[in-house]
Amino acid sequence: MSESERPRGLLSAADRAYLRGDADLGSTQAERNARARIRDRVEHALLDFEVLLDGLGARDRELVFEKRLGERDGTESFDALVSAMAFLYAGVQDTDLAFDTVLSEGVNLAEAANDRAARVTFERTYHALDADTLLRELRAGESLSLTELAFLHASDDVNREELTRLLDDEDDFDDGRIQSKVTEF
């Protein structure tokens, strides 16, 4: 099923086309209206997660994640889940809430259904994305995150042949799919 044939989820096919830059709405007002509709749907979808957590049974959730996502191409499922986490992470950063608290409470809320609690540790270390540093790490045999690989792939300072050669030794590199959907530089 192509992206344009996919049924409406949080976004309609027209919303997806607009946000990807594949559709022009024709006027500034139409664009404002579309963005307002999308913001409203995102807000209400987030509020619906409490209803889903409480009302959608474990079997239904398993059918979505295990069966439906499991039947999709592995990269498509992975990208969808990574993008959902990235969107929620970025959204929490836009609030006055601490992400590690939200993450810990979310994990514990899910674990409570199994009559258990969890101790969640979350560590975040920031570093600037720099092509020279990342290439040095790759040459030294260190593994890079998909975001770091995407940065290298998009960088004009990186020789594609060298990058392909360096990553040929890695089993987790697919030249056609370097998280360009998740991270655009």
Rank of each mutant, 00 (worst) to 15 (best):
M1W: 02
M1N: 07
S4H: 12
S4L: 08
E5P: 00
P7G: 05
L10R: 07
L11G: 01
S12T: 15
A13Q: 13
A14G: 07
D15Q: 06
A17N: 02
A17M: 04
Y18E: 08
L19F: 07
L19K: 09
R20T: 06
G21R: 04
L25E: 02
G26V: 03
G26E: 04
Q29T: 09
A30G: 10
A30R: 15
A30I: 12
E31C: 09
R32I: 06
R32G: 05
A34W: 01
A36R: 15
R37G: 08
D40Y: 07
D40K: 06
V42F: 01
E43G: 03
H44G: 03
A45K: 10
L46S: 13
L46W: 08
D48H: 12
F49E: 06
V51E: 12
L52K: 12
L52P: 02
L52V: 11
L53Q: 10
D54H: 11
D54Q: 14
D54W: 07
G55H: 10
G57W: 02
A58W: 10
R59P: 01
R59E: 15
R61G: 04
E62P: 03
E62T: 11
L63N: 02
F65L: 07
F65S: 02
E66L: 07
E66M: 04
R68G: 06
L69P: 01
R72T: 15
G74S: 13
T75P: 01
T75C: 11
E76Y: 09
F78Y: 06
D79K: 02
A80C: 09
L81S: 04
M85L: 10
Y89D: 09
Q93C: 11
D94I: 05
T95C: 03
D96H: 13
L97Q: 14
T101V: 13
V102M: 06
S104D: 03
V107I: 13
N108K: 05
N108D: 08
N108E: 05
A110S: 09
A110P: 02
E111H: 10
A112H: 05
A113D: 09
A113S: 14
R116F: 05
A117M: 09
T121Q: 12
E123L: 14
R124L: 13
T125N: 15
H127K: 15
H127T: 15
L129H: 03
D130F: 07
D130A: 09
D130E: 15
L135W: 03
L135Q: 04
R136G: 04
L138T: 00
L146Q: 09
T147Y: 04
E148V: 03
A150V: 01
H153I: 00
A154L: 04
S155M: 14
S155N: 14
D156I: 05
D157M: 06
E161D: 13
L167Q: 08
D168F: 04
D169L: 13
E170R: 15
F173S: 02
R177N: 08
Q179S: 04
V182I: 15
E184F: 10
E184H: 12
